[in-house]
Design a protein around this nucleic acid. Structure first.
Lengths: 352, 352
DNA sequence: TTGTAGGCGTTATCAA
DNA sequence: TTGATAACGCCTACAA
């Protein structure tokens, strides 16, 4: 009744191969001391029984799960979908795996984190939302490292990997000024999120440094999503007599795309002729023909690699507390939504 | 020296709470026989030590991992990104979790599957590619159920959940005929994949039933991706004097979008005025303003639910072999890329 | 309701 | 190199 399931264990293989159980274990451990002869015999027996080492038991025995938890927010933002795929691919290639969590609407990040901790994963990657400092210290007690991806917090104990958001946004501000932008509109994302805040700040302060009066910079909330941005643009342009912006900075690409669709579809505006537009992230969608968005590309592959590095170093204790935060440089993608600037004011529009 | 890691176990909690270890276990098991008094004491102690039950150990003890492996292909196709998120959300809500695998370029599906089997997961969901029958029988021996999502195989032993691909494609064929389509172009996906094949077949046979000569139906390869479709359309229309199609059926939405972008951006064609277009999947992107694609929506939530149902029933042995394949009905989304049919002949609502 | 004893399948330790 | 034996942390009997 209990023995209904046909579980093949290392003991079965050992018996068939005429060796001891630990020898079976060694046969499956790269670089273990075992004669080729025995290893072959074991592997043959294993194959015959279609035996597969039980990763769960292994995890329990050596206190290493080879699992990394990745907590991801909205996968409708291609940046996160791409990032998740990058994590999966990279970990899979190194024999580890991703336990995926999501924080869809309302679900608490702490909740997901707690569950992840329960699996004694090797590390946790958080791509969104806020963590209670309670959980953070719990994870530290448990020796499970956490790294924020594309996020940061004031708490220096929390490692993070992110892009130079301020600098990137500043670059875009310069480009738009050069192209003749005078009245600006910012579409921000989650006001609580560090990423949106940093980009908005970077953009604003560069504008100020370039002599644009703060009164010429308006800000609306795009809720980090396509639909949010679309709607925000809709209601902003619907019956507003206010100064008409000639340059829009959406804090991420998905919102920039939503904005572009609204501007064109609802108001028949041309980009960049009537209004210029910039985004941030450099997702694939943004580079497509209908958009060719001017944006900053976040080097996802690099960021993922650095995130995993950081996790490992934190786990092995190589890392103390300095250098906890890695900041990578984004690359300006000169699309067609911001005309090439000719330093001189007045613009030119030369982009054959 | 080994004890450097501060692992809190149920024994520690038991000691602090003045109870036995199994009592701690019971305190964390909903519906176990334990007095409220003791449970409270245990939970208090647990909190004080920030103890978290070890899911790995639990899995080993009761031979149930509460983990479902999801093997996903290309996450650049929003259909799969959405599906993955749906799986994660739903499993997370029921206290289970997703171990995510990917089969990026060239990586073998069997490989991922093997690794999944090693974790003795409760079930495996496969959203793409082919499985060797070897692996399938291995998983059956191991008692780990596999369900194909949006795929099928000839092998009846393999359960699958999918949409009525033929019927959906047929509906689109009718709609396009009704709208005046005479020369057809099909953009297919992976010719090896059942999904693309079924849709192509459904489309073709309905056309034939409607009296369209096979010679009027052309087929090109869009490689299941935006870029593949874009390029295919590009080279098809570049210098082709062949009959100009007036109706295009892309086997999935992401390819339809690529096609639309190419038609408009490269050739200045209007949709549906110059050429009509239909897709399949009903992803969010396809419904957006620039596209408003006529397509068939696959009910992802329902499909996910049925997939998990199937997994559970297979695991508990409730399922023999009949009814292994669940087919759900897709919903026609009447977008703007196929003009409303002027009824006329063959305009019946239901499918005979 | 509670505690004791044994098992889940592996890796780690230490002799041989 | 190999084998016996003890963890790993929990759950499921079974007995009290």
């Amino acid at each position: 009744m209990k023995r209904t399931r046909n579980r093949v264990t290392s003991y079965d293989v050992a018996r068939l191969a005429g060796v001891s159980q630990p020898t079976v274990s060694r046969a499956f451990t790269p670089g273990a001391s075992i004669t080729k002869d025995k290893r072959d015999r074991v592997l043959a027996a294993a194959k015959q029984l279609s035996y597969l080492p039980n990763s769960i038991a292994r995890s329990l025995a050596n206190a290493r799960s080879n699992i990394v938890a990745v907590i991801v927010g909205d996968m409708h933002n291609p940046f996160y979908a791409e990032s998740l795929q990058a994590f999966i691919t990279r970990l899979q290639d190194s024999g580890r795996h991703v336990l995926a969590f999501t924080i869809s609407d309302g679900r608490d990040c702490d909740d997901a984190l707690m569950q992840a901790l329960g699996y004694h994963v090797d590390g946790i990657v958080v791509t969104s939302a806020h963590l209670s400092s309670d959980l953070i210290s719990t994870s530290q007690d448990a020796g499970i490292p956490i790294v924020l991806f594309n996020r940061r917090t004031a708490d220096p104990a929390l490692a993070s990997v992110r892009c130079e958001n301020e600098a990137g946004a500043a670059t875009l501000a310069r480009a738009m000024c050069n192209a003749g932008g005078r009245e600006f509109l910012i579409i921000r994302g989650d006001p609580q999120g560090s990423t949106s805040r940093d980009r908005v700040n970077g953009f604003r302060s560069e504008l100020e440094a370039l002599g644009v009066a703060p009164g010429r910079v308006e800000e609306i909330d795009g809720q980090s999503s396509y639909a949010g941005s679309y709607d925000a643009v809709l209601s902003r342009f619907k019956d507003k007599v206010r100064p008409f912006p000639d340059a829009i900075f959406a804090v991420n690409d998905i919102m920039a795309i939503g904005c572009a669709d609204a501007l064109r579809g609802e108001f028949g505006l041309a980009i960049p002729d009537d209004i210029m537009l910039a985004g941030f992230d450099g997702v694939r969608e943004a580079t497509r023909a209908p958009y060719e968005l001017t944006t900053i590309r976040q080097p996802i592959e690099v960021m993922v690699e650095k995130t995993l590095d950081l996790l490992e170093r934190k786990q092995s204790g190589t890392l103390e507390d300095a250098g906890n935060s890695l900041v990578v440089t984004g690359e300006l993608i000169a699309g067609k939504t911001v005309p090439a600037g000719t330093a001189a004011p007045g613009g030119d529009g030369d982009r054959s």
